[in-house]
Design a protein around this nucleic acid. Structure first.
Lengths: 297, 297
DNA sequence: CTCGACCACAACCAACGGTTGTCACAGGCA
DNA sequence: TGCCTGTGACAACCGTTGGTTGTGGTCGAG
């Protein structure tokens, strides 16, 4: 880049604060690695070849990417850090929507272990905001931490083609009494576990959260083959389910269980993108005929 | 990336085919350079910290950018290489439009010296297509080279506020007789020079192409201050002119001089993006009351 | 033809990034 | 409790890399 901008090896060496010979060696090594000549050397400087002209913008991209990467962990950074629970749940879509609406706003997305670590990360400023379900009233949040209910995610039943309820157009939670619902993954001790405990207790079915999370594919395989097991998924427009499993998505009604997502942030965080995110999300409009855990009412 | 994927330094070392100690040193050096801890080391592996989670996608971006950069000059590449004459002329906009319509099609844009080198570059396969004005009939192109007239770029007069024609709403080329038109830049010997030679000769004004090109800013400064000099610019919707110069853009009428841009490509080039580009461009519909050089009629 | 500015080549050397060998520490298990 | 295993870190070592200085070849202008 320096040689292309300066037009001369020697002048580039000045700006890089190394010797002309070192520049020569760098360019030679780069050309050797790429297998392409980047400059035509003349007695009055260096001119980009066609390959050089093609390569130059990519080289600039590379340095820009490096700069962004370093800035992402530098204190005093500007990108908004958001904690999103689960990549296949509604908050991931909310963040994508926000990114689509504000493409110039830099976002860094992370996923923390549970709500407690998320809240303390917000408190210390490690992250700027967190999508979580609050399992206690908002006034019991630490001082200076604010929260707003931003999305109620309706749940659907996901079954295999041989499941007893596979043919149903809709199912009520009461109909699930006695059924086995399988939620794999390490949710023990998190707010998800609290949600499922309440849900199962309210309607008399058992939710099994045992077993490690081997990823989404084995889960789907197991569900597809089993006449007894089913699982819950969020009503998502974006998620593309792998075809070929014969899976059924069955709406839940009377009432529809919804998972209450809140956004949590530090009240004194001045980040402009945080204000934009809150404005973009608004607050949830609660719909009738839904069920939420008692701690969310 | 290897450590994050594997979850263990030792396993990452295997995939990288170096020793665990070398991985340790690399991560330590990276953390030192960034000034941030990326992993929390436990007795059963390494877990990403929040900073690590934030940094990881940027690291992946970086390696992707490197891959793209290297691929851009590798023979057997897939990106379409297009030669565009001048970044402030219509072909640049045509390419931008195409990129907007086909955002997934990788494009590399270069600017060659003149039409002859562009044609020979197309012939040898160094580039895939070139936007140029043909100063000779298309049937005199080398064998296997095809061309299509894709855009006629109407010219406007650009003057300073003190210029004799600054107040005019429109100007005919004949009215420019005796005026001085300044086109800086190294256009001597190129198809632009041929165009301007014909244009000046047809209507009796002189076009000065002397002087090196110091960039667009000094050009605009000079034009803005001079009551005698003017220049031509293409009718561009995209170009944002720096404010504060008081510059006037005056349409040319009766007839409007237009610069005839052609796309030149190798007939046997199978690149799918080339077909898409040709389909996107279509062919020019010539409008009445325009002037083109005699070699373009 | 000569001169000056350009870049390349050679020799040298510090420092970087790998290696081997070893250690401290944590968790599982008898 | 104590051993064993697997984790990452540290130390010593060393070849390669990437810089330096010194010099040479080439091209275009005067």
């Amino acid at each position: 880049m320096a040689v292309a901008d300066a037009g001369r090896f020697r002048e580039a060496a000045l700006t890089l604060e190394i010797t002309q010979q070192a520049v020569s060696k760098r360019i030679a090594a780069l050309e050797r690695d790429l297998g392409a000549r980047l400059f035509t050397r003349t007695a009055r400087g260096a001119l980009l070849t066609v390959d050089g002209q093609v390569f130059l913008p990519h080289a600039r991209d590379l340095l820009r990417a490096e700069e962004r990467a370093a800035a992402s962990v530098r204190p005093g950074r500007r990108a908004l850090r958001v904690d999103v629970i689960g990549r296949r749940l509604a908050p991931a879509d909310l963040v994508r929507d926000f990114h689509h609406a504000h493409p110039d706003t830099a976002l860094d997305v992370v996923t923390l272990f549970d709500a407690d670590t998320a809240i303390s990360a917000v408190r210390t400023g490690t992250i700027d905001a967190s999508f979580r379900a609050l399992t206690f009233p908002a006034h019991r949040l630490p001082d200076g931490i604010a929260a707003a209910r931003v999305h109620d995610e309706a749940l659907e039943l996901l079954t295999g083609p041989g499941h007893a309820l596979a043919a149903a157009h809709a199912v009520t939670p009461a109909q699930l009494a006695g059924h086995r619902i399988w939620m794999p993954g390490n949710v023990a001790g998190t707010e998800w576990a609290a949600f499922y405990d309440d849900l199962g207790a309210a309607f008399g079915f058992t939710i099994e959260v045992t077993g490690p999370d081997f990823g989404t594919e084995p889960l789907l395989d197991t569900i597809a083959d089993s006449p007894h097991l089913a699982t819950f998924v969020g009503v998502q427009t974006r998620m593309v389910w792998p075809a070929g499993h014969g899976l059924r998505r069955i709406p839940l009604r009377d009432p529809t269980p919804v998972y209450p997502h809140s956004l949590i942030w530090r009240a004194d965080n001045p980040h402009p993108a945080l204000a934009a995110l809150r404005a973009h999300l608004g607050t949830v409009r609660r719909s009738a005929d839904t069920w939420t855990p008692k701690w969310a009412r």
